[in-house]
Design a protein around this nucleic acid. Structure first.
Lengths: 343, 343
DNA sequence: CTGTTAGCGCGTTCAA
DNA sequence: TTGAACGCGCTAACAG
């Protein structure tokens, strides 16, 4: 049977209140008493029961992390950032994969308030705003990643997707490419929209006409990238470069190109987005836009813990990270021969 | 202020005991009373406080998953399996990245017993057995992945690493390769040891002498795979194939080969282990041994929940999964020209 | 500096 | 079929 604070108190010949004071450093405890308590704790192998503690303090030191799918290589780094910072601050992380399913998101949100988590980090949720508003009413602080939550306003951490996409596209444009295809993310997601917008912005600034036939819609997976480009190749619409909405899609696109006998980057340049861990090791190594995923996880968690402690920078606070172009081997200047010929 | 069971009881003009019976289906509740309670719950937006509930039932419906580093692409699938099964069974998952640090492992283990988790899934821990034994004394059920925990005996889920490694190596041998290098995992880890053993077993069965100069030690990262092979190339020890202890190392090795002007698989065949998500999309697509990671996560969690409920198949129970050879493009028959020449 | 007392929100006897 | 009373393990006044 497990030792409780009561057992410790009896063995140290003090009251439970004194033991509690000793444990939490709240209120004074005589050196001699302190010693006896330490002994008792040692002997009994006592560990405070956090559940009982939470019941009275109303704090669980637990944070929830809701995200679509840990299996997307973009997330592990984020999780790591969250994890490590939470750990440093004495918090623990509850992981919830909601699989892009609004019903599951709602269920989980309900459960979290029952579980009395101290705060929630929401990443890539697709549920309606009233679902989140209802949850927020429980008084649990929220920090959002990549999605603006206006009511009630929650701190927001995101990267400048539009600018990142623009930079990626400009990179291709500067290399002389004019026929730049785009594999988009799932339509309806703000992230996809922004990246597409950045792509168009770059084209427009460079005076290149936007051709919607060059945009294939994906869903951030390799499969979709592969199939999208495969389909595009079948339409015989010429292009010399691809900006994919994320690295996975870029990798799928590259595979489609290779399988059809094209060489990357000699025939087609490819640029991705995210800079996942393996981007540097694909063949050819992938040119991409780096998101400081790990850092974003840390920062978001920091904001969340601040919010838990009632420290907020002010309403509508947000942290914006900038994407950084990482040039590797998958992009190169357009070849003279290419300029004329159809791919 | 949040509604408690007391508020529900008052509004429904019954006692808290009746509400509790209604909520948990323990004991009878008259249809008419039931109706009033439902109404009250609805109106007040009541959700039972799981913390209070846990304090009396001693069950938190929370499982802990301890693993080295979520950032290794091997883990996300595992986590997903754990997550989904836990979810189906009404459990929630606490994620702990212990970073291969025994001290952190011990800390976390301590915390888990304080947090009163119902069970713990231990993956790839490196701490001493007495650390685990001490934890087990708290009476929290454990399931182990890839590491045999003998005292007290815990259910074990693992793949047959040795056999998988043997099959991988045999595949290369059957293709005619005789000079097969190996990039190992961290020394001291059982998994690394087993995979090395499988490699040696295959060589020995084929009557090929084991050459320790062909074994470079890594740590399951791309970096180590890259550097290991780079170093091996510098020694000018000839080889025509590589069996890497995991896909990450295989990918790193491939990059080292490519960067030094070798072609894969024409000059050197490469085989990995794990079949991570991107293995099918590397260039060339990676031949590897598939571990049913997702399924293992599910199965392990199932065993854990069974253990939580006191249902065990018996002492020393274990579930062994078999690795499956997935032949892709990174391995090919040794070329006639190669047989003589030094790589 | 320390002990007594009263909850935190809930499940669970035991009578009624 | 229901309610009163107690306790889970702990913290937080309030006295002393």
């Amino acid at each position: 049977m497990k030792a409780t604070i009561y057992h410790v108190a009896r063995r140290a010949r003090v009251s439970t209140a004194t033991v509690s004071r000793f444990l939490n450093g709240t209120g004074p405890v005589a050196a001699e008493t302190r010693h006896r308590i330490e002994q008792a704790i040692q002997v009994l192998g006592y560990r405070p029961n956090t559940v009982a503690r939470s019941l009275v303090t109303k704090a669980t030191h637990t944070l929830a992390l809701l995200m679509p799918d840990i299996t997307n290589p973009f997330f592990p780094d984020l999780v790591k950032g969250v994890q490590l910072l939470a750990d440093e601050r004495g918090y623990t992380v509850l992981l919830c994969s909601v699989a892009g399913d609004p019903a599951r998101e709602e269920e989980y949100l309900e459960m979290l308030s029952a579980k009395q988590v101290d705060g929630a980090l929401l990443v890539g949720l697709v549920c309606g705003r009233e679902t989140i508003a209802r949850f927020a009413r429980h008084g649990i602080p929220i920090v959002s990643l990549d999605r603006n939550i206006d009511y009630p306003p929650a701190p927001l951490v995101h990267v400048n997707h539009r600018k990142g996409a623009r930079i990626a596209t400009e990179h291709l444009l500067q290399l002389g490419h004019r026929l730049v295809a785009h594999v988009s993310g799932p339509i309806g997601l703000r992230v996809s929209h922004e990246r597409l917008a950045g792509y168009r912005e770059a084209l427009s600034r460079a005076g290149v006409a936007y051709d919607r036939r060059l945009v294939v819609s994906g869903d951030f997976t390799e499969e979709a990238g592969y199939e999208g480009i495969e389909a595009l190749l079948h339409t015989a619409t010429p292009f010399t470069a691809i900006f994919a909405a994320n690295d996975l899609a870029a990798i799928g696109a590259t595979a489609a190109l290779t399988d059809s006998g094209r060489r990357v980057p000699e025939d087609v340049s490819v640029v991705g987005f995210d800079d996942i861990r393996l981007a540097a090791y694909t063949s050819p190594a992938l040119t991409t836009i780096r998101q400081p995923t790990y850092e974003m996880g840390r920062r978001a968690t920091e904001l969340l813990i601040d919010a838990v402690h009632g420290r907020m920078l002010g309403p509508g606070q947000q942290v914006v990270f900038e994407g950084e172009l990482i040039v590797r081997a998958s992009s190169m200047p357009i070849a003279a021969a290419q300029q004329a010929k159809t791919v």
